[in-house]
Amino acid sequence: MTSSGTQPLVSEGFSGRMRVQDPALPPGQHLVDRFPVMSAGPTPVVHRRAWELTVTTPSGRQTPWDFAGLTRLPVEDVVADLHCVTRWSRSGTRWRGVPVEALLREVDDAGARYVMAHSYGGYTTNVPLEDLLDGRAWLVFDHEDEPLSAEHGGPVRLLVPHLYLWKSAKWVNGLTLMSHDAPGFWESLGYHLYGDPWREQRHSRD
């Protein structure tokens, strides 16, 4: 007897993890204690001294950054709640890094409205430029007072805590300013172009 397409069979006594909505969390999220590692490929291992990031303007002008240059910018301590589209959230995580706008201050961003973040290993994700400004996004290199580990995106990851966590690209090595929006790695598979957890923008459809 197949049960596909009909009412699913209930497993007696199975409740699964708690699904009670916590009003402090975005809809459909639950808190976890551990920091799960999500990966779509092998973990790149890049040492701080070898790390490089390139900022590219819509006109194609490129500005290279290295780790020493990054840490000469004003460093901030950040406490943030994280919301992963796979439905876990963590509250009060602590990071140290540089606001993204500090890297964009000198570049000619004429016509730029969106940014594609690029990572070692080929990952990409798109974010509106304005969401990376005004102290809402950072390039972070310490987590809980330790250098950021490779499995959580070290040496440097993007942190955009007001959007779903797939937007906070691990192992970031490029920020490309664009005049038009374009989908990144998960966005091209139906994940939302913007990804606001409070509006539960998981997918571009249903």
């Binding site: 699913p8 069979l9 209930v10 497993s11 199975f14 409740s15 699964g16 699904r19």
Partner: peptide, 11 residues
């Protein structure tokens, strides 16, 4: 193996 809870949640 698929488990379904009374409220429809599946794993």
């Amino acid at each position: 193996v698929r488990l379904t809870a009374a409220d429809g949640y599946t794993a």
